[in-house]
Design a protein around this nucleic acid. Structure first.
Length: 904
RNA sequence: GGGCUAUUAGCUCAGUUGGUUAGAGCGCUUCCUUGACAUGGAAGAGGUCAGUGGUUCGAAUCCACUAUAGCCCACCA
């Protein structure tokens, strides 16, 4: 006996372990057509948020659907080691013990992070199970596990050997406190109320001026960062700026240093900003760095790793903190007469997302991947249509980024991550010049191989492992993620999984990591596997709150998927998310939205209970099994036709990734078609056995159609109603494709019958509306008349009677003229006998309103039909429809006029 | 500054290649605890489809411009 209420918690607790333990998520390579998807691996430090819920619900729907369609399916789960985030978490924990990572030393610290991972790293993986994800946990991977690490090392070595990885000077975001380079997304920009300092740079050869103004001729620059002045190696103007054309090529004196620097011209300079002259400091500003590269300028690094001035800043400032130096330097400029004036100025300043220190742009030695050669085939793969973006418009964004791609800085000054497989030969790494290192290094997959290479390179066969020192840096976390679609399948080994499941089919992700992740996976996949890693890139929106703001911890507007599951069930969460998901735009969610999913689960549960109560009247063999010709009523034919439509529609919709349309379609079929109409019909069907056999069959199809959206409740009901035997799962039941032509013919299904029944429902609705309009109490039986010449309509007398609580249903010829309230329908005009129940004044008012409305329509409709252009150009069916509507409404007017006289 | 997207009912959104009197859910109003379901049922109100112009016999749909909002990229030294 089914419980009165659906117990979602019990079902979830029961079915997830059942699926997992019985291998329902697991296929072996071999038979059938593969359908594989890799999950975007969440950070191992992460906890499940709405973004995951959305992303994974979409994937699970696609995967479950394909699996039921008979594909050999793999949805591969895993987590990302998330270098900086994870290291940060553990450092915080250490801090509570009053320790820093340096106190432990590298090895002990990394061991400590692994320890943390072991203990807490399973959190999100556990939470993903709560969602109902049908990921193959037997193939779960971690970007820092042994296999993925091997792949990372091999990729680094291969790219290095191909000349695509190099070590070079580059300007990076640098946190002086953390002592590491930061990726662009690790820098948080904040509004800053600062100043613009206007500084005069004397032109060489100009005459001395009056007292307090040492030179007559000078150029004036404006800067927000005067302390970087000692690093200037040029000043620049815009080449189109006539004011300064005469200066280009001249030389100016850098104040306080007496160094001479050139005046150059570059498009980068904005004429309107400041004075239109900018100082160029290649070692301390990313734009200046690029300008410096274009003009071959010297790069002078005037700061130390921890944000203090070094000897190149000038003897006076050595060792000074960068902000202290700013004050000192400005004071000196003023004293020397170089400072013209200061303005207030608001700009954005970058801060370290971890410690909030002001980020420094800094020249440093980092490892880079040359991206251009990798990008070209990846562009081509999308251009040729081999890989498709869904929706298509994301292609432009992809192309735009790929065409302007910059080299990728892959080194990070962290301890947690894949260590760079470069080995320096000690003794050859000598200090030379100021802060510059001349290095001899080799790149190899392990220390032993590195030693052999080092011997060859140096010609010193006496070298030992002790003479080698591995690069202390680790790789950017994305350097392992970009291999995810093949490293997780066993690459570089030649495994059966890799052979069978690569390339994957769909990649589902949000727009925010198209560049970081998707584009790079494309490049890596094509380069190392010779095939793009997926065929379709499905991009969905971001989950926002009811006000359209991004969900974030600091705003406190996040919804917790786990709380929603607790309150509404996993199925409700999934269904509601699917229902509000549009691939084209972001989704706004609020708690109330999840009631839709919960209510839907309740609805189908109650429909199941209804069926169970009628189990005895229902042939358990099922309707579909009895294939012979049968005599079916119109309503029975209608639901079978509707079911066939729903099956076809769902498959088409999912083929096109229209997750939301699918949710709407199955919702409507289940609720409106089955529950609102067919179940009501079945209660009083003339042939109950047939009616219930059909209900049983249609319901089973509907359950399976719904399963990818609501896996738990569908599984539970499938067992409760005996559609499945113990040990079976709806997950492996066939996804319905509709009825065969033979079946449809045998049962006499057709569009005509379907339309006929829908017309009947329209008539019933019209009569209910009349009842409501005239405030006929529900308990009152009424007299109904239908004007029609269709004998099929007359045959429906019984079902009409029941549906509208009619005392009698009479039929009169079409066009009959009755003095009763009526509505026209495709079924015929329906009349309701009121027998003195009416408030005449109110009714008159209503009729007047109705007539005005109709007159408007008739006028425009007649004009349209009188237009020869319309009748000539529009499709015949459209014109015909317009004529029919016009006639219908004219008839309506006649009826209303009559009623008006009656009530007057 | 460059690009993208949106603007349809009070709210959240559908609306397939232009073609019925523009739809759904929530909310609201009225009625209904009749044996699956009040997490429900029936009915109803509510929209000049952001604005202007254009193309067309016909525009929510195509084009241009404008307004508003949001996102991305580049960012002013």
């Amino acid at each position: 006996m089914m419980e009165k209420r659906y117990d979602s918690k019990a079902a979830e607790a029961k079915w997830y372990p059942f699926w997992e333990n019985n291998g329902c998520f697991h296929d072996e390579p071999g038979k059938g057509t593969p359908y594989s998807v890799v999950i975007p691996p969440p950070n191992v430090t992460g906890i499940l948020h709405m973004g995951h819920a959305l992303n994974q619900t979409i994937q699970d729907i696609l995967v479950r659907w394909r699996r039921m369609c008979g594909f050999n399916t793999l949805w591969l789960p895993g987590t990302d080691h998330a270098g900086i985030a994870t290291q940060n978490v553990v450092e915080k924990a250490l801090k509570k013990e009053g320790k820093r990572r340096q106190d432990l030393g590298r090895e002990a610290f990394v061991a400590r992070v692994w320890e943390w991972k072991k203990q807490y790293g399973g959190t999100i993986v556990h939470q993903q199970r709560m969602l109902g994800n049908s990921t193959d946990w037997r193939r779960e991977r971690f970007t820092f596990d042994e296999g993925c690490s091997k792949a990372v090392t091999k990729v680094f070595c291969d790219l290095f050997n191909e000349g695509l990885i190099y070590k070079g000077n580059y300007i990076v975001n640098w946190c002086p406190r953390c002592g590491t380079a930061l990726a662009n997304d690790e820098v948080e920009h904040e509004a800053n109320h600062g100043h613009l300092w206007y500084i005069k740079y004397p032109v060489v050869g100009s005459a001395k001026g009056a007292a307090g103004e040492p030179y007559k001729d000078y150029v004036m620059v404006a800067t927000t960062r005067p302390e970087t002045l000692p690093g200037d190696t040029a000043v620049a103007v815009n080449p189109k700026d006539e004011r300064y054309a005469h200066l280009i090529g001249k030389t100016v004196i850098l104040p306080l240093t007496n160094r001479e620097i050139p005046v150059i011209s570059d498009d980068y300079v904005e004429k309107e900003f400041g004075t239109g002259i900018v100082k160029i400091t290649p070692a301390h500003d990313p734009n200046d760095f690029l300008v410096g590269k274009r003009h071959g300028l010297e790069e002078i690094n005037i700061m130390t790793d921890d944000g203090h001035m070094n000897e190149l800043a000038g003897a006076k400032y050595v060792g000074m903190d960068r902000f202290k130096c700013r004050e000192a330097l400005v004071a000196d400029l003023e004293a020397g007469g170089y400072l013209d004036h200061i303005e207030d100025y608001d700009n954005q300043v970058g801060h370290c997302y971890r410690c909030h220190e002001v980020v420094e742009s800094r020249l440093s030695k980092q490892w880079f991947v040359k991206m251009k050669p990798l990008a070209e085939p990846a562009i081509e793969a999308v251009k040729s249509g081999e890989v498709r973006f869904v929706p298509k418009r994301w292609e432009n964004i992809y192309f735009n980024w790929m065409n302007n791609i910059q080299d990728w800085c892959i080194s990070r000054q962290l301890w947690w991550g894949h260590r760079i497989p470069a080995y320096y030969v000690r003794g050859n790494a000598s200090e030379e010049g100021k802060g510059k290192r001349e290095e001899v290094f080799v790149v190899a997959e392990n220390a032993e191989k590195a030693l052999e290479k080092a011997k060859a390179v140096t010609g010193n066969s006496a070298l030992t492992l002790a003479d080698l020192e591995q690069d202390p840096d680790v790789l950017d976390t994305w350097f392992s993620s970009w291999l995810w679609p093949f490293s997780t399948l066993g690459w570089p080994e030649k495994t059966a999984d890799l052979d069978y499941y690569y390339p994957t089919a769909d990649l589902v992700t949000a727009q925010d990591i198209i560049f970081f992740w998707v584009a790079r996976m494309m490049m890596a996949g094509i380069h190392f596997m010779k095939k793009p890693p997926f065929k379709n890139i499905v991009i969905h929106g971001i989950v926002r709150d009811a006000q359209g703001r991004k969900m974030s911890k600091s705003l406190g507007n996040s919804l917790d998927p786990l709380e929603l599951i607790e309150a509404y069930s996993a199925d409700a969460l999934r269904f509601s998310i699917a229902l509000i998901t549009s691939l084209d735009c972001d989704s706004k969610v609020s708690k109330e939205k999840f009631e839709i999913g919960r209510n839907f689960a309740t609805k189908i549960w109650n429909a199941a209970r209804f069926m169970e109560m009628n189990r005895e009247a229902t042939p358990q063999a099922g309707f579909g099994a009895a294939r012979g010709p049968v005599q079916l009523s119109a309503d029975e034919k209608q639901i079978l036709w509707a079911c066939d439509l729903a099956c076809r529609k769902m498959n088409e919709i999912l083929e096109r990734y229209r997750i939301q349309d699918g949710a709407l379609a199955i919702y409507d079929f289940f609720w409106t078609q089955i529950c609102d109409w067919y179940v009501e019909y079945a209660k009083d069907a003339p042939d109950k056995a047939t009616a219930f056999a059909i209900l049983r069959d249609v319901y089973w199809k509907a359950l399976r159609l719904l399963h990818p959206y609501m896996p738990f409740v569908t599984e539970e009901i499938a067992h409760q109603l005996g559609y499945l035997k113990e040990g079976e799962s709806i997950m492996r039941a066939a996804y319905p494709t509709g009825y065969t032509d033979e079946e449809k013919a045998a049962w006499g299904l057709s569009q005509e019958v379907y339309d006929f029944v829908n017309a009947k429902r329209e008539a019933i609705t019209a009569l209910r509306a009349l009842r409501a309009e005239y405030k006929v109490p529900p308990s009152t039986f009424v007299k109904v008349t239908v004007a029609t010449d269709d004998p099929k309509v007359a045959a429906e007398v019984d079902s009409l009677k029941r549906a509208m609580r009619a005392e009698s249903v009479a039929f009169v010829p079409a066009g009959s003229d009755l003095a009763m309230p009526s509505k026209m329908t495709a079924f015929g005009t329906v009349y309701l006998s009121l027998e003195g129940l009416v408030d005449k004044a109110a009714e008159l008012k209503r009729i007047e309103g109705e007539l005005v409305k109709l007159a408007g329509f008739i006028k425009s409709s007649e004009a349209k039909l009188a237009n020869e252009q319309f009748t000539a150009h529009a499709p015949a069916a459209i014109v015909e429809e317009a004529r029919r509507k016009l006639a219908e409404n004219k008839e309506k007017v006649v009826q209303l006029e009559k009623l008006k006289r009656l009530f007057a």
